[in-house]
Simulated assay, not measured.
Amino acid sequence: MNIKVFILALSTIAVGLVELIIGGILPTVADDLNISLSSAGQLITIFALIYAISGPVLLVVTSKVERKKLYLAALFIFFIGNIITYFSPNFTFMMIARVLTAMSTALIVVLSLTIAAKVVAPAHRAKALGLIYMGISSSLVMGVPLGILVSDTFGWRVIFLGIAVLSIGSIILISIFLERIPGESAIPLSKQLKAVASLKLGGAHLATMFMLAGHYTLYAYFTPFLETELQMNSTWISIIYLLFGIAAVSGGAFGGALSDSIGTHKSILTVIILFAVVLFLLPVTTFSLVLFIPIMMIWAALSWSLAPPQQSYLIETDPATADINQSFNNSALQVGISIGSAFGGVVLNQTGSVSHIAWFGGVLVLVSLACAVFSLTRKGTVTTVSGH
Rank of each mutant, 00 (worst) to 15 (best):
L348E: 09
S303L: 03
S338Y: 11
V290W: 15
G130T: 04
G130S: 04
R98L: 03
P122K: 07
L314D: 07
S88I: 04
F244N: 04
S353Y: 06
T235K: 06
T285S: 14
T28M: 09
L314S: 09
V29D: 04
P319V: 14
T381P: 11
L258Y: 10
M103H: 04
V335R: 03
F78N: 07
I148P: 01
V119T: 10
S39V: 00
S104W: 01
I298L: 15
A123H: 12
I315K: 12
V150Q: 07
V99A: 04
G41E: 05
V335N: 03
L279T: 01
V65F: 08
I181P: 02
F254M: 12
A40D: 01
N233P: 03
T101S: 15
W359D: 15
I268F: 00
L189G: 00
F79Q: 07
I168G: 06
S38A: 15
T270L: 12
K379R: 14
I176R: 13
S167L: 07
T285D: 06
S234W: 00
A73W: 12
I148A: 11
L10Y: 08
F93D: 13
I240L: 08
G183H: 11
I50A: 09
A358F: 09
P224M: 07
I159G: 01
P308T: 05
F328W: 14
A197P: 00
S170H: 01
Q192W: 08
S250F: 13
I293A: 02
Q326H: 09
M209N: 00
F177T: 11
G362R: 07
I171M: 15
S139P: 10
P309W: 06
L8N: 07
P308W: 05
L149C: 01
I272P: 02
S261D: 00
V15T: 14
V290C: 01
F76M: 08
V373A: 09
G155A: 12
P294Q: 08
G380P: 09
L113M: 15
A121P: 00
L333G: 12
S88N: 04
L376S: 10
V382G: 02
V158E: 11
L173F: 15
L218A: 14
V373K: 04
L218G: 12
T270Y: 06
A106C: 01
S375A: 14
K191I: 12
W359L: 14
F210A: 05
L218H: 03
A370Y: 12
L274S: 13
Y219E: 07
M95A: 04
Q192A: 07
Y216V: 07
T317Y: 04
S305W: 01
T384F: 04
T383F: 03
V335T: 12
F91L: 13
A40Y: 00
